[in-house]
Structures are given as C-alpha cells and as structure tokens.
C-alpha cells in the first residue's frame, strides 16, 4: 500500500513536472500562423513548421500550396502571415500591398537549381547552351526535331515537357532562357505536377523537360541531367555548382515574405528566427541548396531590425549568386 502510494506520488510528481515545463512553453508561445504560396518553397517551410511545432506545441502552423502568385494574392490583402515565393514579389503586388497598407519583410531562404533533363537513352546530348535552349523553348520556336537544334543530332521529333503557366518555375525559366517572363512556346506537354513530367521524360528516348533539382535527384536513375552552358562552358546542375554560382542562369533564390505587422507577434518572430536558424540543414534535407551560414546571419539581422520592402522586386534576379543576394541584403 505504502509502496504503491510512493510510486503513485512519484509518477504524479513526474507528470506535474512535465505539465509545468510544457505549460511554461505553452504560456510562452501560442498562436496560429497561416502560410501559403509556392509549391517549390513548400517542402522547406513544411520541414521548418514540423520542427517548430515539435518545439512549440502551442503554436499551430498551417501551410498551403496555391502557388507563388496565389500566395501573394492572399498576402497583399492580409489573409496570411507568411507567403512562400519562388520568385521575387512583383511591382504590381508591391503596389497592392501599399494600397492595403501592408508592410512586408523579404527573406531569401535557399537556392534551387532548375534542371534540364533528357532520357538516359539519349546518347547524343550531354550539354546544351542557353542559346540552344532558347531556340527550343522560345515563343514561335520552329524546332521540331533534335537535328533542328544542332546538326548531327538525330532527325527525330523532340518531345517537350514543362511546368504549367501558373508555376514560378515556368516564370523563372522563361525569363532566364527566353528573356521575358511567361514568353514560351505553348505546344508542349504541360503539368503542374512535376512527377508527370518525370514520367514523361523517363518514358521517351527523344524527350526533354525542365523542373527543380529535387525532382531530378529523386529520379536520377530514370533521367539524365544536361550540363548547361551559359557562356562559360558547360556546368552540371547540382548543389555545389548552384552554391558557387557557376550553374547560371538556371539557379534561383527562394523567398519567404513576412507581413510586417505579423512580424511583431512573438510566435511569428520566433517562427521566422527558427526558420532562418534551421533553413540551412532543412533545405538541404529536402533537396535544395542552402545559403552560406553568414547569409542567414545577415538575413536574420534584416528580419529582427524590421527592414520593410523588397530589394529584389523589379530587378533582374536571373543568375544571381549568393554573394549578390548577400550584397543586396546589406
């Protein structure tokens, strides 16, 4: 009886301790954080949210995937606290923010390398120049066969696979390759689901497609990534070449945008700081290229000093290196 009582007391004391400790954490941080936007940035934010909620059970983080444009549509009216974006905010979106008196803080969180892929049975093509890519993908392109791209390549029809027009990947690729965002030939197989593109290219010897590095790395057995020659010789896509800025012009910065008023809230402040502290490890884990540690420090300072506005909006971010991102942040 006595023994049992002691055990019970011990268990109770232990429970009380846990509850108190948990209670302290709960009391410290409580709230709902609404995030929406790019499906490219989603895996990083998802990973951060998962870890953050593990450490702060009182905070509920909800992440949606309505695309970079869809996220900004909700961000500029104040529906959401944080917007994921695989491209900088547009001038028109900045104007809408101003009209609704919404301030925002712009935070680069990682890099992605857009990867041009072909079928592994394609033995004639290992690298491709930006000019050749433009010839294939530009609006009004007359390329029908591989031989139209470079003499000596087979006289077989080229099958093209690419993302749909609502995706940030499409906007970035067309701007980097064709010169104008959203200017592209339209007669290719388009899908918002990158796995459909993977399956398409993996199933046809004469296919070509493009999407984010993570989808290539998960399917590297079924696909062959092309080296891209941006004028300084062919460079293979990969974390190292994206980090060093050599893989140009197809590496791109990924952002989160935080509502200025929300950034005053303790839970959101903690979340964004947690994001920047862990973005390096977590973005790498889900297949992206982290910024250097020093960059995250600079960006964290930027956030905590509450600098509003965009340094990337309306500027040419094509082929931006991490150093340039950093310089822009300072």
């Amino acid at each position: 009886m006595n023994k049992r009582f002691l055990i019970k007391a011990a268990v109770l004391a232990g429970l009380a301790g846990t509850v108190l400790a948990g209670g302290a954490a709960l009391a410290a941080l409580k709230g709902n954080i609404n995030i929406d936007g790019s499906s490219t940035v989603y895996p990083i934010t998802e990973a951060v949210a998962e870890e953050f909620m593990g450490a702060n059970p009182g905070v509920n983080v909800v992440v949606g995937i309505s695309g970079s444009g869809g996220g900004f549509k909700r961000f500029v009216v104040g529906d959401i606290h944080v917007s994921n974006a695989s491209r900088p905010i547009k001038k028109s979106e900045v104007e809408k923010c101003a009209a609704n008196s919404i301030n925002f803080i712009e935070l680069p969180v990682a890099f992605d390398a857009l990867t041009v892929v072909v079928n592994p049975k394609n033995d004639w093509c290992d690298s491709i120049t930006v000019a050749e890519l433009k010839k294939i993908w530009d609006q009004g392109s007359t390329v029908k066969n591989w031989s139209d791209v470079r003499p000596g390549w087979p006289n077989k029809p080229i099958k093209l696979f690419g993302p749909g027009t609502d995706s940030g990947t499409f906007e970035y690729f067309t701007e980097a390759i064709n010169g104008t965002s959203k200017q592209s030939r339209a007669d290719y197989t388009a899908s918002e689901d990158d796995n459909v593109l993977v399956t398409g290219v993996a199933g046809d010897q004469y296919a070509m497609g493009y999407f984010g590095l993570a989808y290539y790395e998960e399917n590297s057995g079924k696909l062959k990534a092309l080296k891209v020659d941006g004028g300084k010789g062919p460079v293979a896509p990969g974390k190292d070449t994206a980090r060093s800025g050599k893989y140009a012009p197809l590496s791109r910065p990924l952002f989160i945008y935080v509502n200025g008023k929300s950034a005053q809230r303790e839970d959101i402040k903690a979340f964004v700081n947690f994001y920047l502290d862990n973005a390096a490890a977590l973005s790498e884990e889900v297949g992206y290229v982290p910024l250097p540690d020093s960059a995250y420090k600079t960006i964290k300072n930027r956030f905590n000093s509450g600098k509003f506005g965009s340094v990337f909006s309306g500027k040419d971010t094509i082929g931006l290196t991490i150093e340039e991102v950093l310089a822009a942040e300072k």
Partner: peptide
C-alpha cells in the same frame, strides 16, 4: 484546405485538411 497541418479541427471555425487534398500534396512530392 491546408496542405500541411499538424492538428485536427476541434471547432467548426478551425483550419483543416481533408483526405483528397492530403493525398494530392503527397503525390506531388518528388
């Protein structure tokens, strides 16, 4: 409907996700 949510709705005003949306968000992962 959210793609990523780590709590179940407790009141009609809570955020939520549903099975088809969760399946969709898993299917689009690499």
């Amino acid at each position: 409907a959210a793609a990523f949510i780590r709590f179940a709705p407790k009141s009609p005003m809570d955020r939520y996700t549903v099975m088809p949306v969760q399946i969709f968000s898993w299917l689009t992962k690499p």
